[in-house]
Design a protein around this nucleic acid. Structure first.
Lengths: 195, 195
DNA sequence: GAACGATACGGACCCCGGGTCCGCTTCGCA
DNA sequence: TGCGAAGCGGACCCGGGGTCCGTATCGTTC
């Protein structure tokens, strides 16, 4: 392996940077007003250390994102129903989308920052491929549902971070209302057309 | 009025800038590699003239966008069925979404540039509000369809420019396939659940 | 615990792109 | 043909992402 145990000041700095970045993204309201120099300063660290630890801005945001997403990922991969693998297809579709919606509601600033990185479309990110593959394979188990790949894209699009932000943040739609709307919409898609 | 007839070199430059920007956005493949200085140079004009004519980058892209969208807007507002106002609700929903999809397919570079402006979410743009209001009011005429406002958002999300770009550009889904998938998906949403 | 290579630090620095300023040119009206 | 004013253009500014290199720290070895 080319692995090399990092020095302990490095891991300490990395943790401080993650914490500072998290706080700044959460506080500042809208993202993109937080600069890399801000993060480094808030963590009491030089800019170079920030870039050494995370590569670039996208790397930093991805690291934050991954840390927040980790429990969700575990619950989906090996947790109990209705999120885990041992769930009937329709219930799992609802659970997946609801979980994703709640995650985005709880981490709006982060997800917005990640999707708004600008350099590449969010569809290139590996985590999108992950969610899409999972949702598509689940949809495929539902009899009579055509084009599961497209349906997965379309349903995921309904939970896009900026749409969620617009509805919850700007229009003030309450959390439970939003969840109910998404569930109702999903139900429409899952149940076939009237004969 | 505070209107003042602009000098003719001004209108000539404005046209040259629009043409140059259009060509550059179309050629360059991916957006964001086109800089404002590029546009000015390609039009044989100074940077200041570019900013004087359009205010800022977003203004330029919006001007291009509005020009391209104008015929579509007219067809929707006062054209014949199935796009115009004299269309039964379900058919019009299909026509609206299909038109929007085709528009985004034909103007991928532009719409990507507009949505990727980064400074504000695409949901703040006035044209989004326009499309949403129209689609929502049409959906409202369909009996038994709950949450027309949310459904309108979700259906519009399925035609997001970066999703379209991902499917058509990156995954190579043919145009007609994409249109068919969107229509099928829409049909699922419009028709009620099986009793 | 002293010495030394490797690893990490940090802030000065570079680059690039959006946006502005100001001396000069051109228009268009009389 | 002359003279304001509208318009021009490129040099300039600024802010933010990303890098360089001399210096400090780690941790391992004797």
């Amino acid at each position: 392996m080319t692995e090399r145990t990092p020095r302990k000041d490095a891991v300490r700095n990395r943790a401080a940077l993650l914490a500072a970045a998290d706080a700044l993204f959460a506080d500042g309201g809208s993202a993109e007003t937080v600069t890399m120099a801000d993060v480094a300063t808030a963590a009491g660290v030089g800019k170079a250390s920030l870039f050494r630890a995370f590569g670039d801005r996208t790397g930093l945001i991805r690291a934050l994102y991954a840390a927040r997403l980790e429990p969700v990922r575990q619950a989906v991969e090996s947790g109990p129903p209705p999120l885990g693998p041992d769930t009937p297809a329709p219930e799992r579709v609802f659970a997946l989308l609801d979980t994703l919606l709640c995650f985005k509601l709880d981490n709006r600033h982060l997800v917005l920052a990640l999707e708004g990185t600008g350099d590449d479309s969010p569809y290139r990110a590996e985590h999108y491929g992950h969610w899409h593959a999972l949702l598509e394979s689940t949809l495929r188990r539902i009899p009579g549902l055509p084009d599961p790949a497209f349906a997965a894209h379309a349903l995921l699009a309904a939970t896009r971070a900026d749409l969620v932000e617009h509805l919850a943040g700007h229009e003030g739609v309450p959390r439970e209302t939003l969840r109910a709307h998404l569930a109702t919409f999903t139900a429409r898609v899952l149940s076939g057309p009237v004969p």
